[in-house]
Design a binder for these strands. Structure first.
Length: 719
DNA sequence: ATAGGGTTAG
């Protein structure tokens, strides 16, 4: 082997592509006695650091650590390497050790990379500190540093700060404009993006394809296809390379797909011919899914040759957003089986589906396997989704624990909304108000969603005065106009207090027509307080608004029957039959050994296995000896008493409870989910059963949670 | 030094 000089070694290094080849060069460096020469070693460190792989950056770190007195280039290289690694925070570690070393002050190459690392962290603070260093060391006016600062601030949606840097920068080049336009796209402000674009043209800077990609993505957030089309035309007039520029085409396609213009999206898509990339496919998948066409989305998805994590996520979240939660979970498990690891976007979508389904054990598994102790445990969207999942699966304590473990500075309005509505569903009104107070204390401004949450918390817990006061302050103090949802909460609240006339007046004074949710709230209150007069009005309205909803007819006929207006009740039943309206099937489900078991009312298919039948008999017997009389008023009236009893004892929630009692051990909490409201008979029965079997039973119905324990329920019998 | 597709709460 001939001896090498330094420069042949360097040119050898230049031809290297893999870690192994890098090692060979390292061996040569040592063999030729250059291991203490800064120059070849720093090149080698740089080679490894910029390979872009985890192994590469580890190798460069090992080399770096062997050096007694690393030079500035080496530090910059490490910072640069970590800036696009999986551990951007390590760039900061190298930066501070650089500062600690005597005579090693940063230069103009240090900050762009360091700021890029900061842009990828989950918190804003380190970047702001770096900004103050930029000023301290006098790199404020460096155009590269300036652009990196704009990028950093816009990633954190701090467009005002980015703008200040932009305005203060002596040189505003193409990259500065692109970065700012892109930033406005991130915060969905296409207006300022467009103004900057004009300003750019005025100052004679020619846009490039990045400019248009940034503009297009800014306008994708707006569902205004007119402007999108205009940009499309503009792009064609200004860049004749459009047809060959895949990136640009993908951005155009995405703009159409996101605006729901799927036929235009299809046209761009097919014009891409053999250049269809995964991004284009993903845009199509999510575009179809977003407008509810999950089948079309799935066909696209199935046609793809190469599926990456993003398109899996697009399909999974497509199902989840369209309410097809089981499909979402099923697809997710298929993905896992292929060995694909979800990231935080996938997890957020899957957790949301778990929450809606009440799939606690899957949610818990996701938490412990992919989130706990991982980098994304700091991700606030994930935390929001987790809190929602734990709340909706009945584990309100876990949700609260998570919430309190999150540092104040990271908490967002959505996070608070998630926590408050969780507490509301569990009827924990005081806690909900306390969390709301904390929100104000740290200076977060509540929004419309927050008020839905706090108002429903008040109505679910009977905090009448607090609720009224909040409703007033909502517009007076916070300047938020109440929407239908807020009126719905107020009707619920007043109705609960027995103020049915007041509730009815509120509906009539609303600036818009009441929807079915609001009438249902009024009807619910009428049922509890036995107000037939207003109840009938509400029922009629509901039947008009939702003529296919069988429950309304049944409620109305039951209400009439209860006041002995048999004839009218019969007429209602007749109308229902004539229209062919079916009673909506009530079903309950319960999770057991990771799978969800579903029960339909009177469904005998589960009865043979696992001793459910005998458990049901045991339940009925013990209830009877405890002096319990079945409440059959909620059963359609024209069947005889004995049969009514049979019907109520086969309600889906009772079947699920029997299943739960058979398949769980003593002391274990039983969690049941129901698609409709829990029935009155089941509610009283469950209270007693919780005492008889010494079990805590948690039932999630369509609106809220019921925690049955020692003979009583957390809803205090109002729901 | 900048870039395209998927993310939470009602």
């Amino acid at each position: 082997m001939p001896p090498f000089g330094i420069s042949p070694l360097l040119s050898l290094l230049e031809s290297c592509k893999t870690i192994k080849q890098g090692f060979q060069v390292h061996a040569q460096i040592i063999l030729n006695g250059f291991q203490h020469h800064d120059f070849p070693i720093s090149r080698l460190i740089s080679f490894f650091a910029l390979l872009g792989s985890e192994d590469g950056i580890n190798c460069s770190q090992i080399l770096f650590c062997q050096i007694e007195c690393p030079n500035q280039f080496m530090y910059n290289t490490m910072i640069r390497g970590f800036s696009h690694s999986k551990f951007p925070e390590k760039a900061l570690v190298f930066y501070s050790s650089m500062l600690r070393q005597v005579n090693r002050s940063p230069n103009n190459f240090t900050y762009p990379f360091l700021l890029n690392s900061c842009a990828r962290l989950s918190t804003l603070k380190p970047g702001i500190q770096v900004h103050s260093h930029v000023i301290k060391f006098g790199f404020e006016l460096d155009p590269f540093v300036g652009n990196a600062l704009m990028h950093f601030y816009s990633v954190f949606r701090r467009l005002n700060d980015a703008r200040i840097v932009f305005e203060g920068s002596p040189v505003r080049d193409l990259v500065s404009y692109n970065t700012m336009i892109n930033g406005y796209g991130l915060v969905a402000q296409p207006g300022p993006a467009l103004r900057l674009f004009r300003k750019m043209q005025d100052s004679g800077i020619l846009p490039d394809e990045f400019t248009f990609v940034a503009l297009l993505s800014a306008f994708s957030s707006l569902n205004d296809h007119r402007i999108g089309k205009e940009i499309h035309g503009f792009v064609y007039r200004n860049l004749y390379c459009v047809d060959s520029n895949v990136l640009l085409k993908t951005a155009i396609l995405h703009m159409y797909a996101k605006s729901g213009l799927m036929d235009l999206a299809e046209r761009v898509f097919s014009s891409m011919r053999s250049n269809k990339n995964t991004a284009a496919w993903s845009s199509m998948v999510s575009g179809y899914a977003r407008c509810g066409q999950t089948e079309a989305a799935r066909r696209m998805f199935d046609q793809m040759d190469q599926r990456d994590l993003i398109c899996w996520t697009a399909m999974i979240s497509g199902y989840s957003q369209s309410g097809q939660y089981s499909e979402a979970l099923e697809l997710f498990m298929q993905m896992e089986d292929l060995g694909i690891r979800p990231d935080e976007c996938t997890l957020a979508a899957v957790l949301s589906a778990c929450a809606r389904l009440g799939a606690l054990s899957l949610g818990q598994r996701l938490h412990s396997r992919y989130i706990e102790g991982e980098l994304c445990s700091q991700n606030i969207i994930i935390s929001t989704a987790l809190i929602d999942m734990y709340s909706k699966c009945g584990k309100i304590d876990s949700a609260l624990h998570m919430f309190h473990s999150i540092p104040k500075s990271l908490k967002t309005v959505s996070l608070f909304n998630s926590m408050i509505s969780g507490l509301a569903q569990h009827g924990l009104g005081e806690s909900a108000l306390a969390v709301f107070g904390e929100m104000e204390l740290i200076g977060l401004k509540p929004d419309g969603v927050t008020f839905v949450a706090v108002l429903s918390a008040c109505s679910h817990s009977g905090l009448i005065e607090e609720g009224k006061e909040l409703f007033r302050s909502m517009s007076d103090v916070y300047g938020i106009k109440p929407h239908k949802e807020h009126y719905g909460c107020m009707v619920d609240l007043l109705g609960r207090d027995g103020c049915l006339d007041e509730a009815y007046d509120l509906i009539r004074s609303m600036p818009f027509e009441a929807n079915s949710v609001i009438w249902r709230a009024l009807l619910g209150a009428c049922k509890v307080h036995g107000n037939i007069k207003i109840g009938e009005v509400a029922c009629q309205k509901l039947i008009k608004l939702e003529p296919d909803h069988g429950a309304h007819y049944i409620l109305l006929s039951n209400m009439l029957a209860n006041t002995n207006k048999w004839e009218q009740a019969g007429r209602v039943r007749k109308v229902m039959e004539d229209r062919g309206v079916q009673k909506p099937p009530g079903w309950s489900y319960i999770e057991f050994q990771g799978t969800i078991h579903r029960f339909l009312a009177s469904d005998k298919s589960h009865l043979q296995d696992k001793g459910i039948e005998s458990m049901l008999q045991d339940m009925a017997m013990r209830l009877k000896s405890a002096g319990y009389v079945p409440n059959t008023t909620q059963v359609v009236f024209d069947i005889d008493e004995e049969e009514k009893e049979t019907v109520v004892s086969y309600h889906s929630e009772k079947l699920a409870l029997a299943f739960g009692l058979v398949n769980s051990s003593t002391g274990e909490t039983i969690r049941i989910m129901k698609n409709l409201r829990v029935c009155g008979d089941c509610h009283s029965a469950f209270k007693l059963l919780s005492e008889i079997y010494s079990r805590e039973i948690i039932v999630r119905d369509a609106i809220r949670f019921h925690h049955f324990k020692n003979g009583s329920c957390s809803c205090k019998d109002f729901w």
